[in-house]
């Protein structure tokens, strides 16, 4: 397992590797200074940090929505230096935004979930098939004809997740996935995430949720990522 270490020595390159990442918003002090970690296939990591520590910014940097001032993001050992690399990261790494409302923009659930497969060149019939499989995986196949405007908060979260799963990513970046979810929907989300084979990097302040899902933890503090001990040990410390 690749734990956060800029100089890992495994033979196989990790699925995702962040190395020496620096970033500062214009006119503000540096938010990330030399952030380093790697994520292996199937690994589920929790990312902890205070508010405004730069967790969402880190996700934006990984997916190429923001450009780092220094450092690299590497996918399967290949540093992302061109637009084609960024496109490859976006296809391989699904990013669930904190606010699902901003992630849904088509009229019906099925259209929205089929959005990514269609953008990646699948013909409509196959895109529909992929979308239906993703909806099934999230247990919301019955919502496929519903308008996205008519969904509850929990349903929106699951539809947004299905929309990402439909593009068949190898890793998921989940930004506060349990935010505003009731207990039942939260448990349902945990159950679904448990069944998924993808690697995950999860930002959450919901510690029991992280404890239930993740096998390792990172802390983002003063712009740097550090490995944390297993969760229960951390809690006891």
């Amino acid at each position: 397992m690749h734990m956060p270490n800029c100089h890992g020595t495994s033979l196989m390159p990790p699925l995702l590797r962040v190395e020496g990442l620096h970033f500062a918003y214009p006119g503000e002090p540096a938010l990330l200074c030399n952030a380093c970690f790697s994520l292996d296939a199937g690994q589920k990591l929790g990312l902890l940090g205070d508010n405004a520590a730069g967790k969402s910014t880190l996700f934006h940097l990984i997916t190429g929505l923001l450009a780092p001032t220094a450092g690299t993001v590497a996918l399967h050992g290949t540093p992302c230096t061109t637009n084609a690399h960024v496109a490859a990261v976006r296809r391989t790494v699904g990013y669930l935004l904190q606010n699902s409302d901003e992630q849904l923009f088509c009229e019906s659930v099925l259209e929205d979930v089929a959005f990514a497969p269609q953008n990646y060149g699948l013909p409509p019939a196959q895109a529909v098939e992929k979308a239906q499989q993703a909806l099934e995986a999230c247990g919301i196949a019955h919502l496929q004809d519903k308008s996205v405007y008519a969904l509850s908060g929990g349903e929106k979260k699951l539809v947004a997740l299905a929309g990402i799963l439909a593009q068949e990513p190898e890793a998921l970046l989940l930004d506060e996935p349990t935010n505003m979810l009731d207990t039942r929907t939260r448990q349902r989300l945990i159950d679904i995430l448990h069944t998924l084979p993808q690697a995950m990097l999860v930002v959450s302040h919901d510690t029991p949720f992280l404890h239930a899902l993740c096998s390792g933890f990172l802390s983002l503090e003063n712009g740097q990522t550090t490995t944390m001990p297993p969760f229960h040990q951390h809690q006891l410390a």
């Binding site: 929505l65 976006r90 296809r91 699904g94 935004l97 959005f115 990514a116 929309g163 593009q167």
Partner: peptide
């Protein structure tokens, strides 16, 4: 954010 979400899904 909507624009980012669209680009993240290959738009």
């Amino acid at each position: 954010n909507v624009d980012a979400a669209m680009r993240l899904r290959g738009f």
